[in-house]
């Protein structure tokens, strides 16, 4: 359990720290001279709204590099963008269920869709396509896609059936694109191990372009059935250089569940 918490905390640390990461920074020790942050007006679409169109990525070795292997295309430095966070707080009866689940129960282990907001934390790029009427997010991870029709009243269709990615609608709040998502099934996980939710989950995301070329993303997750208060997370997305989203057919060759099951059985029999 402590390992799980640590892993979660490390992920959280990354979400906090990533935006501040300078190119080439890492354990390899890089003494590259600090570059200044370049500021310029945010791009705007013909209708005057901020233009979110483009390829974005929150993390992953291909943009951050790692010890001894800096990224092929280091990203320019950006300003720090503090990320608001509130931890997951489960009602006691659901906390017990959550703790009973292991990584073997993770839907993404079976290549199932990660849901929202978890899809945003995958270490792969996504592409946003924006029109005046609709914003579409194409995720490389799990080949997920989201259609986000724009309507100022944030009205959802009344014939929703529960789905992994839910039903999203959006509106512009000044220069921030707000996405309201409901209609989830209760099968995906919110953030990490065992982070269950109900079909009543409601996610509100805010996408805001920064004048240093980055995109701030914040998600507030409410679930009156399982959570005692909203969970808040976020990230600063970067525009990776020379990257386009490509196919990721996760179910193609997935021996991991069988290995993990056997490892868990061995572990149990050794205790």
């Amino acid at each position: 359990m402590s390992a799980r918490i640590a892993s979660f905390a490390i992920t959280a640390a990354a979400l906090i720290a990533l935006p501040a990461a300078a190119p080439g920074q890492g354990r390899g020790g890089d003494k590259a001279p600090a570059q200044p942050v370049v500021h310029k007006p945010i791009p705007r679409a013909a209708d005057g709204k901020p233009d979110l169109t483009g390829t974005w990525q929150g993390g992953g070795v291909s943009i951050t590099g790692e010890a001894g292997a800096p990224p092929l295309h280091p990203l320019p430095p950006i300003d720090p963008h503090p990320i608001r966070r509130e931890p997951l707080a489960y009602k006691p009866e659901f906390e017990a269920k959550r703790k009973s689940l292991t990584t073997l129960d993770d839907p993404t282990l079976q290549c199932l869709l990660p849901g929202v907001p978890r899809i945003q934390t995958m270490p792969m790029p996504l592409e946003i396509v924006q029109t005046p009427k609709e914003v579409v997010i194409l995720h490389e991870a799990f080949r997920a896609w989201r259609r986000i029709p724009i309507n100022d009243k944030l009205t959802h269709p009344d014939d929703l059936v529960p789905t992994w990615m839910g039903d999203s609608v959006g509106r512009w709040d000044g220069d921030t694109f707000v996405v309201d998502t409901i209609g989830f099934n209760d099968k995906s996980w919110i953030a990490g191990n065992g982070t269950i939710h109900s079909e009543k989950m409601h996610v509100v995301e805010r996408y805001t372009l920064n004048n240093d070329g980055s995109l701030s993303w914040e998600a507030t997750v409410e679930d009156p059935v399982v959570l005692t208060k909203p969970y808040v997370t976020g990230a600063t997305l970067r525009a990776p250089i020379d990257v386009r989203i490509e196919e990721y057919e996760c179910i193609e060759n997935n021996p991991d569940p069988a290995h993990m099951k056997k490892a868990a059985e061995l572990d149990k029999s050794n205790k």
């Binding site: 490390i10 992920t11 640390a13 990354a14 979400l15 720290a17 990533l18 990461a21 920074q25 890492g26 354990r27 929150g58 993390g59 992953g60 070795v61 951050t64 590099g65 790692e66 010890a67 934390t121 995958m122 270490p123």
Partner: peptide, 8 residues
């Protein structure tokens, strides 16, 4: 320096 490898 874990931040660079900590994203999943």
């Amino acid at each position: 320096g874990l931040l660079l490898t900590a994203w999943p």
